[in-house]
């Protein structure tokens, strides 16, 4: 248990370090920060002068060393456009995204596991076919188009919900539904497959022959063992949702969250903020992995002994 935890911790640290490093080098090697910060008409001498002042004329490894030693102390430098620390700018919009994300993930997980169990318990039935078809539809949805269609139908045509903005519960409905669609489809697929596998195992026959009700067999016996792949998938989808889908959904619905701010930082080429946001995203992935591991340990007592 202790060894496993240390191993995971090492992996997490490496992951955060790796992501930050990759984003640093792609930004500073492949793009010229000075060209981004100054207007195109700046005379060349002034560009060079500015480059020296900012320290961008030094070898890239020297700059990287300075950056990474500061980053280790959570100092990612100031934003280029707003004079405040980048990490603060990266963290500020995060609660808004979490607000959407938690509701969407809860919705997708509960509905997904429910539908997946229901379908997996009756493979080949009409209900199963319906659930399978809907899950394929869910995973095939192009998010960019789906968000716009939802806005068109529910806000423009029916006038039921606000098109964009932040504040009331009504503003949350469309972003949550669009964020939940894809994870919901995947959760149904993985739950169904996992439960079908479990139900074919000998211990299920034992449980049934003991005279337990089908409900108990599925909910208490099969589900517990089917859980690990489902939890892994939900964890992965949550990470994707918070750091990927949110960029598109929040941009369309004008939700002032992490994805919206990240896209803004990318468009304005605010490199310190982009790197700080990549750091936050990596941190989110690590935290989700820890939560998934904890659920593993709760679901499967044998892990505790390893």
């Amino acid at each position: 248990m202790y060894k496993l935890a240390m191993h995971r911790l090492g992996h997490s640290a490496l992951l955060i370090f790796g992501v930050v490093t990759v984003v640093f080098f792609t930004n500073f090697l492949l793009g010229d920060p000075v060209r981004v910060m100054l207007p195109a008409s700046t005379p060349p001498e002034a560009v060079e002068e500015f480059r020296r002042q900012m320290g961008f004329d030094r070898p890239i490894l020297v700059q990287y060393w300075e950056f990474i030693t500061r980053a280790a102390l959570l100092d990612f430098g100031d934003s280029w456009w707003q004079k405040s620390p980048s990490l603060e700018i990266a963290l500020r919009p995060f609660p808004a995204t979490l607000q959407l994300g938690i509701v969407a993930i809860a919705l997708a997980s509960l509905l997904g596991i429910g539908i997946g169990l229901f379908a997996g318990a009756r493979p080949g039935s009409t209900w199963d076919k319906l659930a399978t078809s809907l899950s394929i539809l869910g995973v095939s949805l192009p998010l960019i188009w789906f968000t716009l269609m939802m806005a068109l139908v529910f806000s423009v045509w029916l006038g039921l919900l606000p098109t964009a903005g932040y504040g009331t519960a009504g503003h949350m409905v469309l972003p949550v539904v669009t964020l939940a669609a894809l994870p919901l489809g995947r959760t149904v697929q993985i739950t169904r497959a996992s439960i079908i596998d479990e139900l074919a195992k000998p211990y299920i026959t034992t449980a049934r022959s003991k005279g337990l009700s089908e409900r108990t067999v599925i909910l208490r016996h099969a589900l517990r063992n089917a859980l690990p792949p489902i939890v892994t998938e939900i964890g992965w989808e949550s990470a994707l949702l918070l750091t990927g889908y949110s960029i598109i959904v929040e941009s369309v619905f004008g939700w002032p969250g992490f994805g919206f701010s990240l896209y803004h930082a990318i468009l304005t080429r605010d490199m310190p903020v982009i790197i700080a946001m990549a750091f936050v995203a990596a941190l989110v992935v690590v935290l989700i992995n820890i939560i998934v591991d904890i659920i593993y340990v709760i679901a499967d007592p044998t892990i505790r002994k390893t």
């Binding site: 992996h11 490496l14 750091t243 990927g244 960029i247 990318i266 995203a281």
Partner: peptide
């Protein structure tokens, strides 16, 4: 591969595309 697969790649792809 474990390392790369555990990163949600969309964000990285977006920042790399923005840089290059």
């Amino acid at each position: 591969i474990d390392f790369q697969i555990s990163i949600p790649y969309f964000l990285l792809a977006l920042t790399i595309m923005a840089a290059i």
